[in-house]
């Protein structure tokens, strides 16, 4: 599984992507593992309490997890997860 980081999230992780040989079962587990790896800046960006931070955008294979199952979105080994802070422009 590939996890890609963008914008300020990339400054918290210090890398633009990371591959995982064993995909966690759900997005919740993935984010918890990433928070443990990258520390509090990442944790605070990802979570608001136990819930998903409304100011983070997470895509699984291009689909916003808000239209999937949120933190309970199941993950598979071939998935690509993209993590963004809120961004905009135009």
């Amino acid at each position: 599984m590939t996890v890609k980081y963008f914008a300020t999230i990339r400054t918290y992780t210090g890398e633009s992507e990371r591959r995982f040989d064993d995909a966690p079962a759900t997005l919740r587990e993935l984010l918890a593992a990433l928070a443990a790896r990258y520390g509090n800046l990442f944790r605070n960006a990802a979570f608001a309490g136990d819930a998903l931070n409304p100011e983070i955008i997470i895509l699984v294979n291009g689909r916003n997890v808000l239209y999937l199952r949120g933190l309970d979105t199941p993950l598979a080994q071939e998935d690509e997860v993209s993590i963004f802070p809120m961004v905009a422009g135009g």
């Binding site: 890609k4 963008f6 914008a7 963004f84 961004v87 905009a88 422009g89 135009g90």
Partner: peptide, 12 residues
């Protein structure tokens, strides 16, 4: 990041 920050989110 400027407005060009959008490249990645639109691409992803």
């Amino acid at each position: 990041y400027g407005t060009d920050v959008l490249v990645n989110i639109l691409n992803q």
